[in-house]
Amino acid sequence: MSEIELRNVCKEYKKGYPIIHEMSLTLKEGGFSVLLGPSGCGKSTLLRIIAGLDRETGGDVLIGGKSMKNVLPQDREIAMVFQNYALYPSMTARENMEFGLKNMKIPKNEREIRISRISKMLGLEGHMKSKPHQLSGGQCQRVALARAIVKEPKAFLMDEPLSNLDAKLRAQIRRELIELHNKLGTTFVYVTHDQVEAMSMGSEVIVLEGGKARQQASPDEVYANPADLFVAKFIGAPPMNIVDVSALSKFGVAPKAEFIGFRPEKAMIMDFSATCPDGCVFLAGSVAARENLGDHSLISINTKAGMIIAKRFGERAFSEEKAMVAVKREDLKWFDEEGKSIRT
């Protein structure tokens, strides 16, 4: 039992300035839950509240159905992986892993078994006698993971663990983390501001902004059906195109809709003179920029509704100066005046 539940959790460092607003969330047992949001939105604070390193000012945290109100961090049976790894500098990789086990009074032979199994799992056998300053960033990250795993916790809490690594290593460890999660089957709570990490690893994504949870859903769902304009603009590279409803009013719009959004890959680019296919809305404009990104290209089109970015895959280059953007009606997302999604 290691479901993590937040009930109306609030946090304020200064009276009247809440960092986390009455947040209620359930993070599934055995899930890979990613807390995604821009810098400063309270992700780390939330994770630290779950760990017990910070106290919530209101509400309650439950782990495995048990209130954590009076449970110390070390007794919550969770392990945390820090952004800067937080390895003990004076200890070898092995001692780093063993420190917690010794403190937990785990017998020596059991410690040996766990450490050798996990170090093999993470490919650390050759580095067990090295101190952190002798290890590369990726190796430090693995030691930090190993240190967490040997404790066999109910849940892993990770705070931007990949942000100090270079892009290539990040992609590699991302894959390793997915594999690790499949192997261990333990609850993962993962904090990041990087949507690629969230989309690629999460079994569910919780998008946070300004101390509030904007949407909790699978990565596919968050991408396809963002709950509001913030999520729509935060996820996707480039993000969803948003236009004012007036620009497309002649095609008939959903009631109460104020904004319309569509993903760049749903925007079809056609010659200015082409006849639009049925069931599409379209906007005319002039091409402002072309970016070739290898397998696809991005074309920015200046329309009277603003700049629209369209993504084209592996087609011949679009060389016209004027263009027509067409979007299938079913690919349009509608948002009301508060930016909330309208399901049609």
């Binding site: 390193l53 961090p73 820090f82 937080a86 917690g100 404790k151």
Partner: peptide, 10 residues
């Protein structure tokens, strides 16, 4: 974070 890590390490 070193102190916190030690704390979580009991």
């Amino acid at each position: 974070s070193l102190i916190e890590a030690a704390r979580l390490d009991s």
